[in-house]
Amino acid sequence: MSAFVIRSASGAEDREFIRTLDDRLIDVIVAPAHSRAEVAAFQARFTATAFAASEEAGATFVACNADGRRLGYVNVRPGVDDIADAPCAYIALLAVVEEQERTGVARALVQHAESWAMQKGYERIALDVFASNAGARAFYESAGYGAETLRLVRQI
């Protein structure tokens, strides 16, 4: 594993880097009730919220190697635990460049998001993952996350 640092995202170059990872996220989404164009439009809209949330109460963090090359990012923001009817932290987005998969970058980004959440006083952290994204599901489960709900969709 190469050495890297995690820092707060800022500026146009970080925004562009984050946007460039949309295709990686889109490629693992199988949404039978939606077209690929709808999935791509959703992802673009959702990614755009990463900085809007950061400017309010959330945060976006970028992992960079020693040369400053961006390796991945995580966006965490306030959410709601519907079961406890209480605030929780919410990992909205997480992506790493393909060659950084299974190197510890994603795990470090999640741990950074969890630390941010604890500093903010949250007792829980939640996230959503597409059912078709088996790799991400296995990664999150290995990090201690467990499924509580399953949303089913049908086009009518």
Rank of each mutant, 00 (worst) to 15 (best):
D22L: 14
S10C: 06
D14Q: 04
E98D: 13
A95V: 04
G58T: 14
G11N: 12
Q155A: 15
T47M: 08
E99N: 10
Y90W: 15
M1N: 06
D23K: 10
L152K: 02
A147H: 01
R102P: 06
A12W: 10
A106N: 10
A48E: 14
I125A: 10
V105D: 06
A106S: 12
R154D: 08
A52P: 06
R124N: 08
V39W: 05
R137P: 01
G121S: 03
A92G: 15
A50F: 09
G72S: 04
G146L: 06
I6P: 02
A41C: 04
A63F: 09
G79L: 04
L94E: 02
A3T: 11
R36E: 11
I125K: 05
S142V: 02
M1E: 04
E38F: 09
Q43G: 00
R77F: 05
I91G: 04
V105Y: 05
M1D: 03
A66D: 15
N75E: 13
A37G: 08
R24V: 03
S35K: 05
T60W: 07
A86Y: 11
S54Y: 05
V5T: 14
S35W: 07
L152I: 11
G135P: 06
E38K: 12
A33L: 00
A3E: 12
S142M: 01
A117V: 06
V30I: 05
E123Y: 03
R15G: 09
A52T: 15
A59F: 03
L93I: 09
D85H: 15
E99T: 07
R24F: 11
F17C: 02
P78F: 05
E123N: 04
Y122A: 00
A37E: 13
I29C: 02
R15Y: 15
V110I: 15
I156A: 12
S115H: 06
G104F: 04
F17Y: 03
A12S: 12
Q155I: 05
R36I: 11
A66N: 14
S10E: 14
A106M: 05
T149M: 01
A52S: 14
D128M: 02
A48K: 01
A9T: 09
K120D: 00
D128S: 05
A57L: 13
S2D: 15
F130K: 13
F139Q: 01
E38V: 11
A33N: 09
E114V: 01
N65I: 09
G79F: 09
V62N: 02
F46L: 08
G79Q: 11
V62P: 03
G104T: 12
A138Q: 13
R19I: 10
S115V: 11
F139D: 06
S115R: 15
I26F: 01
F130M: 14
A143Y: 01
R107E: 14
V74D: 09
A95E: 06
D14S: 07
N65Q: 15
G72Q: 06
E99V: 04
V110W: 00
G58C: 12
G58L: 12
H112Q: 12
S115N: 09
V76N: 05
A50T: 13
I156K: 09
